[in-house]
Design a protein around this nucleic acid. Sequence first.
DNA 1: GTCTATAGTGAGATAGAC
DNA 2: GTCTATCTCACTATAGAC
Lengths: 193, 193
Amino acid sequence: MLTTRKTNRRQLILDEAAKLFKQKGFGGTSMRDLAREVGMEAASMYNHIKSKDEILDLICTRIAHTYISQLAEIELTDASYAEKVKALIRLHIRLMIEDGAAVSVANHDWKYLPEPQLTAFKDARKNYEKGFAALIEQGIAAGEFQPVNVSVALFTILSAVRWVELWYRPGRELSAEELEDHIITMLLTGLAK
Amino acid sequence: MLTTRKTNRRQLILDEAAKLFKQKGFGGTSMRDLAREVGMEAASMYNHIKSKDEILDLICTRIAHTYISQLAEIELTDASYAEKVKALIRLHIRLMIEDGAAVSVANHDWKYLPEPQLTAFKDARKNYEKGFAALIEQGIAAGEFQPVNVSVALFTILSAVRWVELWYRPGRELSAEELEDHIITMLLTGLAK
DNA sequence: GTCTATAGTGAGATAGAC
DNA sequence: GTCTATCTCACTATAGAC
């Protein structure tokens, strides 16, 4: 079908863009670079996307929405707070492994978004952080966590999962699940004996 | 003195560049932007620096050398491995607080370095990570740490201190030292009760 | 939808007067 | 050392043939 074909081409552009943006940065990637990777001329891509900025926006917005809906799902379960936090850590790591290029772009290149998308992205991230922090706060109140500083705990967790994408390669010594287990152990029980 | 940076015009350019690169990214900052901040015309800056790339290189290289010499100093002390790791964490946080813009640039914009500086930077970072990992490994062997996966522990620590710079503002609820204490607690003893 | 050709812009960097 | 003026180049995006 024509519509499916168009969607695929568009998605191919977005996927290759995420890979290149991750590798060379948004500013370091030209539309000609991207076109070469996609297999068409730069001008032809404008039949599928409106602008380079739109590509960045589509990548960042998709990742932001994924995080937010994952958080909303977990909030609705009746697991303990510790289990909710662990589940969120697992989802972060899994998304990093399965969609690493896009996550990397959303982490590093969001600052190149034009307004008003920039503000929208920052607001979405702030909301996500608030929801995550609330889980930690409630876990402390429930006696499941140590009375740590909530912001410190939140950002330690959020940043700990970022490096996965720089480090993890499929077929490395660790499976995805083992990696999740190790990171959760490190964050929940710490390094010291 | 080696540790004192001269406050001449060249250093002013580098400092303002670090701030702008952090704020808008290397690719998002033009020499004209920078010149406005420094208070001269773009062309005049070329009397003080050779190129935009050189600015990036000087920032990244200075930070890389700082990390490496800090590690070397700590390796020479005869503290326990746990104390060495804690000292390194404190130094990371302190450098982040005192020289946040440059650290941020070295963390995010190093990928725009031209060769051969790019390779040199990556090699330096890899060496630093190796030395840090060795401390963790020896700490495990000495029974000071839990038998965690060394890479996971290393990257969790390295990434945990990164967010400080996005989050910390002088005069916030936490002093620098309190922040160090909180992060060390989180990393060493974990979140769980 | 894809191409070639190119418009239009803004970048990094240089020349030369003062 | 700083300026104005400008070179040269690469980039995003568009026009129009097919």
